[in-house]
Design a protein around this nucleic acid. Structure first.
Lengths: 190, 190, 190, 190
DNA sequence: CATGAATGAGACTTCATTCAT
DNA sequence: CATGAATGAAGTCTCATTCAT
């Protein structure tokens, strides 16, 4: 009895990320995934009942993975600013190290492929930052501004900085991270 | 390309923006534009030799319009911080007032539709900010950080804030603009 | 301006009937219809939004046509038995002359293609027979048996007779029709 | 074809009948049979070398079973009309009791699945009726009409009556059987 | 042997583009 | 020149059959 190979899902995911990175989501097609994975068309449909499901499934997985990775650096009892710095650095590092994944997620966000469940997924990622910011506020370290606004400000900044680095082929080193964080810190510190 | 009726081009552009706003770029198709504009397929192909050309043409036009609109508020001899605030407010106002256009541009940015010419267009938009920032640095008002970084930081922040407002249906008023700007100003001021 | 050619619907219908006659409904495919009609795949989808719709549309059309053809021979004031004979002969003639159509209808009846609307269509065809039978009963010519039963009996007989003739390649002539009708008449007459 | 476990064949047949009853022959597929029988695909292909063979095999079996069942009621020396009535009642009872089987057979009759051998099978079923009719003719009880025609008339009537009962959810009782037979008897009696 | 995952040919359907009217 | 019907390549998906376990 041949068991459904759980690896195949991963293989399909990997091929999908690669193809989207190279050609964009709109050029993604099942035949290409089949060729890249060396799987028959039908095999893929054994794991995902449609192209749409494959995309949404991968999207959700990446969102989850990413949230976990980002918060993995937070040490419960570390001082606030240090936590913030770790989180910020890690967030940026993530955007760079998992460029393919973020590219895929971004492409999906602008597509008609996402189902309503996928669309809701963003919110979960914010919970951790909000908690941290609340702590900072309690310690009188952070301005008394709505968490949503602060978060949007910092994440927008971080995202755009990474995009810029990618575009201009700038290597992200410690100095850059420090500079980037200092901008954010100065804006939110009390 | 016979540019006999510039009106028709405008009609096509408008329909395209509307359709992309409603269904996303990936769902845009020529038949839909034909229906929306009440033009025959052939007519549209008289003005744009392909779907790709239509998209790139509109993209470039919007990029140009947007750059002009953004910088239109700068008064040559105004004090730096005031110029910065005007620019920031105007930038955000623009994102909101011309939401359809920005939505289209964003969708295009991550698509395989853009030709190399279109992809280069971003840079032009930065020149004005860079000049202003140089002035601020000369006046010792702005941190001595690379313009690209500062700009990415501020624009990223502004974009994300608008996205957030759109998502949570937050009305953008003076108080909000002041708060958003204060975040940015604190981060770049010396 | 090229107008949508109403002939094409007919051409598609004809090709469909021919193909189903030759290979059965389950072997019917859009490519074959395209080849037979010499139309592009897309053209057919301009007239029918799916294979299913094409089948249901043709099915309904044939049901309607057939009902009309069958009752076309009834002369309002003709004596009952004569009307009955005309109807019976005509019904059988129809099954033979429009064999292709009846074959298609039968194949559809046994398929998962029919929508609920199509499935309801049979009843309409019975109304005319029922009215005639009521007249026969009033004139004390027909047994006092439920119309549905009488009709099923006669139609079942007629259908099977035609099937038999088709199978054994029997030519249907006046003698045959008389014999077939006499069987039916003897069974219902009072 | 290793006929190691005749039970499995029966299981496959039963599942096939159920599936065809529920979804029609055109929707029948091997995976569904596998699921219903809880047998692996390969196992089924051990018993039937193709879907076509499975269908034909079941078809032939049912035809045989049915013929046997129908004639099982005939008592060699019973009077003609009684034999006829028994046969008729039994025929109808069969159509109802083994509805699934008859439904399957009917769906097959108009499909491209049947091989030439299967198609010939009808004739065998007629032999018994023909013999009985010959006896009736000899006894001057039956009109001197071709057996094929009489048989088609009666069977067509019976089949359609059952179909009608199924459709309108009419329960078949003695009264109904008597009425139905009287129609047929009146038509063939001399 | 039994299994059911894997296969891929072939079916349905879409849509950018062309071209007869 | 405008029109929109027609086109067919290319995409999504199904399912009878095979074959590694």
């Amino acid at each position: 009895m041949k068991l459904k190979d759980p690896d195949k899902i991963h293989i399909i995911y990997t091929a999908t990320l690669k193809l989207v990175k190279n050609n964009g989501l709109s050029a993604l097609n099942m035949a290409a995934i089949g060729k890249e994975t060396k799987l028959g068309m039908g095999t893929m449909y054994g794991y995902f009942k449609s192209k749409e499901e494959l995309i949404n499934s991968l999207f959700k997985r990446l969102k989850g993975l990413n949230t976990n990775r980002i918060y993995s650096v937070i040490k419960p009892n570390a001082p606030f600013k240090l936590s913030m710095k770790d989180l910020f650095d890690n967030y940026i590092k993530n955007r760079v190290d998992y460029f393919e994944e973020h590219f895929f997620v971004e492409q999906c966000s602008n597509s008609h492929f996402l189902d309503s469940e996928s669309k809701k997924l963003d919110d979960a990622a914010f919970v951790g930052v909000f908690e941290l910011l609340d702590k900072g506020k309690k310690e009188l370290l952070v301005k008394n501004i709505d968490n949503t606004i602060i978060t949007a400000h910092m994440m927008g900044s971080a995202n755009e900085l990474v995009t810029m680095c990618m575009k201009h082929n700038i290597k992200i080193n410690k100095a850059f991270l420090n500079q980037a964080f200092s901008l954010c810190w100065d804006s939110i510190k009390r």
